[in-house]
Simulated scan of single mutants.
Amino acid sequence: MSRWLTEPVPRGRVAAFRTLVYLFIVGDLLIFTPWVRSRVDVSGDLYQPLFVGRVLPLPTPTPALVNVIFWALLLLALLAATGRAPRLLGWTVFALYLEWMIVAMSYGKVDHDRFALLVALAVLPTAGRARHGDQTRSEAGGWALRVTQIAVICTYFLAAWAKFRFGGLDWAIGSVLAKAIIRRGTELADLIAQVPHLLLVAQFGILAFELLSPLVFVLPDRWRLATVGFFYSFHLVTIATITISFAPHLVAMASFLPLEKIRPLVALRGLLARRSGHGRPGAAAPAATPADGRPEEVPAGQPPGGP
C-alpha cells in the first residue's frame, strides 16, 4: 500500500499541477466566487459556521477581514504558481483559501466540488521543489498527487452514498434530473428531456458511474486515462445541460494526467524560468535528464553536456 501511495512521478508533473492549481485559485477569486466579498454585508446572525469553523474557532467574518483574505490570497497564489517557496507559500495559500471557503459555505449552501481542490492545496506543499520539464521522479510528489486522486474519487463515491442515504432508491426512479432541467436547463437539456425514459436511464447511469469510480485505480495506465477522459466528458455534458461546472473538481482531477507532456504547460516552463531569472542570457541551462528519470552518466574528464 505504501508503495502505491508513494509511486514516483516526474517532478515536472508536480510543477505543472501546482501551477494549474494556484492559477485556478486566482481565477476562482475573480470569476467563480467574488460574491463572497458581498455576502458578509448581511447580518452576522446569518453566519452559521461549518464544523471546522466552530472547532478552530474562527471569527465571524467582517468586510475588512474578507477583503484582507481576498487580496492576500490573490497575490500569494500568483507567487505560488511560479514554484517559489513551495512550502511557505503553499501552506499560507491553503490556510487562506480554507478560510475563504468556510466563509463562502457558512451561509446555507455547501458545494462538494471544492473537496478535492482543498486536499490538493493541503498536500502540494509536502511535494517540495519541482521545476517544469524535470523528468526526475519524486515519491513525495507521487504521494501528493495520489492523495489528490483519492479525494477526487471519494467525491464521486460519497456522492452516491449520500444519494442512497437521503433519497434511497427514489433518487434513481424519481424526477431529480427533470427538476434540475426545469430549474436551470439549457436548450440541449430540453431536447434530451423529450426522449422517453432517457432521464431515468441517466439517473441509474450516474449512480453506477459514481459507485464504480474507485475501479479507476486498478485499471492499466491506458484505460485509466480513457476513464478519466470519460469523467471529464460527463462534466462537459453536465455543463451543457444543467449548467453546473464543477470547475474546482475538474482542476483537482488533472492529478491523473501526465501534465508534463501537455505543450501549453511545457511552454509555460520557459515563461516561468524567465520570470524567476533562469532564462537570462548567460544563465546556465539545466542539465538534460533522460526520459527514465535517471541522471545522465558523464565520462571522466568530460564536462556535462558533451564536448
Rank of each mutant, 00 (worst) to 15 (best):
P304L: 15
G305E: 10
E297Q: 08
G141D: 11
I242D: 05
F17W: 05
L124H: 02
G27M: 12
R274N: 13
G27S: 11
V228M: 09
D170E: 14
D170F: 10
Y22M: 06
T62P: 02
P286K: 04
L271F: 13
L118K: 01
A85V: 05
H112V: 06
A208G: 10
W161A: 15
A72V: 14
G133H: 09
R224K: 14
R18D: 12
P286W: 11
P63Q: 12
T60I: 15
S38I: 07
A240T: 06
L268K: 00
A120P: 03
I192D: 04
E99H: 02
T289C: 09
A95H: 06
L74G: 03
L211Y: 04
A81G: 05
A284N: 10
P248E: 13
M1G: 05
R13Y: 09
I31K: 01
G141Y: 07
V110I: 13
D190G: 13
I25C: 09
T92N: 04
R84C: 10
G174K: 04
F94Q: 00
Q203K: 04
V218N: 02
S276K: 04
E7Y: 08
G128K: 08
K109G: 03
E210N: 06
F217G: 07
Q194S: 10
V40Y: 04
P248H: 11
A180C: 00
R131L: 14
R165K: 09
R275G: 13
W171G: 00
I25H: 02
E7N: 12
E297R: 03
I262C: 04
R87P: 00
V176R: 03
